[in-house]
């Protein structure tokens, strides 16, 4: 099938094409899904190199499961978000268990908000605050407020009820607000209220 014709096809159909030996379908899925997977992995991990490793592993699992994929089962993105979260949680648990002291401290000499784009500084500040949240709160907040998913889909990804999702996001946002409140002036947040 021509590569251009795949632009309108759903992920699930492309995965079936890949399982049937269509290499172009794999390239289309790679271009479409890898940036999302990478972005999500980075938000859960806060580390670019680790996020790349998780992304490659998650996509590898997708290629391997393709022959068994049933189109009516679930959305590919839902499955991927779940795999990414599990890989990230495993990675963070191993890192905590093996060597807490080896986790790098936040850099002291980082550039101030005046020296870099304010927006990028806000993204960085949010990432730092997200890194301090418990895994499940971070996952729920990222899925809801950055990835923009609806609560029922998040509940499916996290395998919990929608009420539990609401509870996790509410607690996560309270913690984020507390963490970021001290940096409002530095990040120009006060100007926009």
């Amino acid at each position: 099938m021509p590569f251009d014709a795949m632009a309108e096809m759903p992920d699930e159909a492309l995965l079936v094409l890949f399982a049937n030996g269509d290499g172009a379908a794999a390239r289309a899925l790679n271009l479409r899904l890898t940036p999302r997977v990478m972005g999500h992995a980075y938000r859960l991990l806060g580390n670019h190199a680790e996020a790349e490793d998780v992304t490659q592993e998650a996509m590898l699992r997708l290629w391997k499961i393709a022959p068994e994929w049933r189109q009516d089962e679930a959305k590919v993105t839902t499955w991927l978000y779940r795999v990414v979260a599990n890989l990230c949680i495993d990675l963070r648990r191993r890192a905590r268990g093996v060597a807490l002291e080896s986790i790098p401290e936040p850099e002291d000499g980082r550039a101030t908000a005046a020296e870099i784009l304010q927006d990028a500084a806000r993204a960085e500040a949010l990432q730092e605050a997200l890194d301090q949240l418990p895994d499940r709160q971070r996952q729920a907040v990222v899925l809801r407020h950055i990835e923009g998913l609806a609560n029922p889909e998040i509940a499916e990804i996290m395998e919990i009820t929608t009420e539990a999702v609401e509870s996790l996001t509410a607690r996560g946002k309270r913690a984020l607000t507390a963490a970021l409140s001290g940096r409002q002036e530095e990040l120009g947040y006060g100007d926009e209220r």
Binding site: M38, G39, R43, D119, A120, A123, E124, I146
Partner: peptide, 10 residues
């Protein structure tokens, strides 16, 4: 800001 500055795959 986080959405606008998503980590890009290399």
């Amino acid at each position: 800001a986080a959405r606008a500055h998503a980590a890009e795959p290399s």
